[in-house]
Amino acid sequence: MDIRVQAAPFDFGAEAGAFAEGHTQAGAIVTFTGVVRGDDSLTRMEIEHYPGMTERALEKIAGQAMDRWALADCLVIHRHGPMVPGEAIMMVATAARHRADAFAAAEFLMDYLKSRAPFWKKEYREGAEDWVAAKDADEAALGRWDGD
């Protein structure tokens, strides 16, 4: 389990490659990366977080994924601070014997870190700045992991 919370950009290709090379026995590697969406008027995004709690929350979420699926390992990198459209915000990677576990665990990590890890996005446009509102759908997405 590798959890990194950082302001610095990361190289998605290099991270995905290194993760895969570290798990040559796994059989299945799934990666996801979230990128600042290019939208005509968005000039930049700032991500605030809660140092200390962020790491705790991500470790808890990743630990739950490791317990629930037959994973060899998982990686979570999440940035904070300023970034512009096209820049990677975060990535997850999972390694497992079989793809079903790797895909499910990656989706679980994404669903939980969207609404259970203390990050807040603020969008800057010409003459306006707005905190991104959490979506009901993001909260509802957690429901599918209950009870099975």
Partner: peptide, 10 residues
């Protein structure tokens, strides 16, 4: 104790 709006990570 910390107070904040619903989180928007990912």
């Amino acid at each position: 104790v910390a107070f904040f709006p619903p989180m928007t990570g990912g």
